[in-house]
């Protein structure tokens, strides 16, 4: 019985939130950082609407959750966690940005569907590294598509584009 209980506890892995997972990823990608604090930013309706039109995708909520991360090199980095819709369910992703708004990392924190899981591929996600708000996020140009994950790939690319554009507009307020 104890063994069965242990199996179920392991099988159903409880306890970690998506924020915990995101912070773990931040620590892995930015070494030697001390305590980091999670914040949220409420996007004003005008900025929200402008970015949504530009990227061709709506924000999941009126606010985004971010971390402001001081580093040893005195550079400040930023990380945003957000959702986009795949075929029917949300995909949760993390974007780490430099102070200048350049992408340093994109990671899928949670994928919830059968189809389109190819977007979790690290090689595909690494295409966004060094992109900024002036980059072309269109699939098929500087960002390659994914066979069997067309909808998810488009969604993630637009979602990352939204974050980069938003950062450009709000960085002085963070």
């Amino acid at each position: 019985m104890n063994f069965i209980l242990l199996f179920f506890v392991l099988f159903f892995q409880i306890g970690t939130t998506l924020y915990d997972q995101a912070e773990e990823s931040i620590r892995k990608n930015i070494p030697n950082i001390s305590e980091i604090k999670r914040n949220s930013y409420k996007i004003d309706p005008k900025t929200k609407s402008e970015i949504e039109k530009f990227a061709g995708q709506k924000f999941f909520k009126d606010e985004v959750v971010y971390w402001k991360i001081p580093t040893n090199s005195k550079q400040i980095k930023y990380a945003f966690i957000d959702n986009v819709y795949g075929k029917a369910l949300p995909i949760t992703f993390l974007v780490i940005l430099s102070e200048e708004g350049k992408i340093e990392k994109v990671e899928i924190i949670k994928y919830r569907e059968q189809y389109g899981s190819g977007v979790k591929n690290e090689n595909w996600l690494s295409q966004f590294i060094s992109f900024n708000s002036f980059s072309d996020f269109s699939i098929g140009k500087d960002v390659q598509g994914i066979s069997g994950a067309t909808i998810s790939a488009n969604s993630i690319s637009r979602g990352v584009n939204k974050i980069v554009k938003l950062f450009e507009k709000i960085k002085s307020e963070l």
Partner: peptide, 24 residues
Amino acid sequence: ILFFIINLNLFAQDDFFTPVSTIG
């Protein structure tokens, strides 16, 4: 305890999910 764990997992929600109907 087992029942509680399964339930907790099945119905665990977070800030990144809200029940929704979608059309495509």
